[in-house]
Design a protein around this nucleic acid. Sequence first.
DNA 1: ACAAAAAGCGAGCACCTAGTAGGTTTTCGC
DNA 2: GCGAAAACCTACTAGGTGCTCGCTTTTTGT
Lengths: 204, 204
Amino acid sequence: MSTIGRTRGSYAKTAARRREILDAALEVFSSSGFRSGSIRDIADRVGMSQAGVLHHFRSKNELLAQVLQARDDAAWERMHAGTGLAPVGIDRLRQLVDLVSFNESVPGQVELHCVLSAEATALDHPARPYFQERYRSLVASTGQSFATMSENGQLADGVQPLAAARNLIALMDGLQVQWLLDRESVSMSDEVRAYLRPLLTVEV
Amino acid sequence: MSTIGRTRGSYAKTAARRREILDAALEVFSSSGFRSGSIRDIADRVGMSQAGVLHHFRSKNELLAQVLQARDDAAWERMHAGTGLAPVGIDRLRQLVDLVSFNESVPGQVELHCVLSAEATALDHPARPYFQERYRSLVASTGQSFATMSENGQLADGVQPLAAARNLIALMDGLQVQWLLDRESVSMSDEVRAYLRPLLTVEV
DNA sequence: ACAAAAAGCGAGCACCTAGTAGGTTTTCGC
DNA sequence: GCGAAAACCTACTAGGTGCTCGCTTTTTGT
């Protein structure tokens, strides 16, 4: 039986190569944005040619999509670490605060989110649908956690779960800009805790 | 006495022309960012050539600087309207809430700030110093207003003026991203009021 | 009305862009 | 170790970039 025409799958080192490219792409898109960042620049960092990169990722748009996907996979991993379950209520808030602390150790990731989410507000940007859906689900799930806390009497009087959720997410994003512009003067995690304290009857 | 070599100043319509160019530049930089937005694109909107634009603004960087300057001038105008004085304390907060409401009527301005401030987090971006200074003074002056309110007993217990100020600014910025991605579901001014309510002993 | 300055344009420079075509080198199942 | 597929490269296309040069047109003070 002939094997002509059958695919053989990628080679042993290919997965590592693709990860190298994704890491370089993250760096470039972080500091230059998607539209201004070039495949050439990414290729140089990995030490290969522009065409070599495009052998692994068919277009610049696909490269962007994979960078965002990889970031989500890593976040998912972090979030479900150990348990395999996404926490709800106060545990979810604690997790978000932990995430903010963690982010202070990976400025590249912060810059990627900051730059791309702003760029993606343009109507014709390829990542716009991605960010629309991302905020929608993020606000919804965080709102659910605030609602659970409300039922448990863990929220101060008059705090609306959905508004609190949206504001928390917005605060985290806004702090990133200020932090990236002046890392010494801004502690994102301290500020987030300061925001939450008046809203809760419990400590985070 | 000869007038050879003396300049004559610009023509009657020049000021209007420059304003047209600045308006077009605002549109382009808003939707494409500074690095990806092109002078050619700006020139097309005004109905003139690229070289014509560069006759009025010597470089793309200078054009950006003037766009930001024009925005600041307009904001200064709005802020000191009538009185000629910048308000402090609760009046300042009311003014900020009004600004947020006003911003909902000028999405272009919001997008400009959102896109450029994120882009300017890059170390080599020409607008980075501008935004660094802008946030520094904005947080400082807003913090001063919260401090004044604290002295007047207008702040809830445990609210730290400087943190409240930084968080308010961050919240305003973060809400802009969500609003630009989904204008129907997000009301920036409502969210800002919801943020302020638990912090104050008075109504804004 | 005239001359000089300002406004504006077309062409071109040197360079960068995403993506393609077709080739060579490397890997790897058999 | 052989052959085919994957990996990768050089060269290229068709286009865009900021900016300059030299020129023509328009405006304007005298």
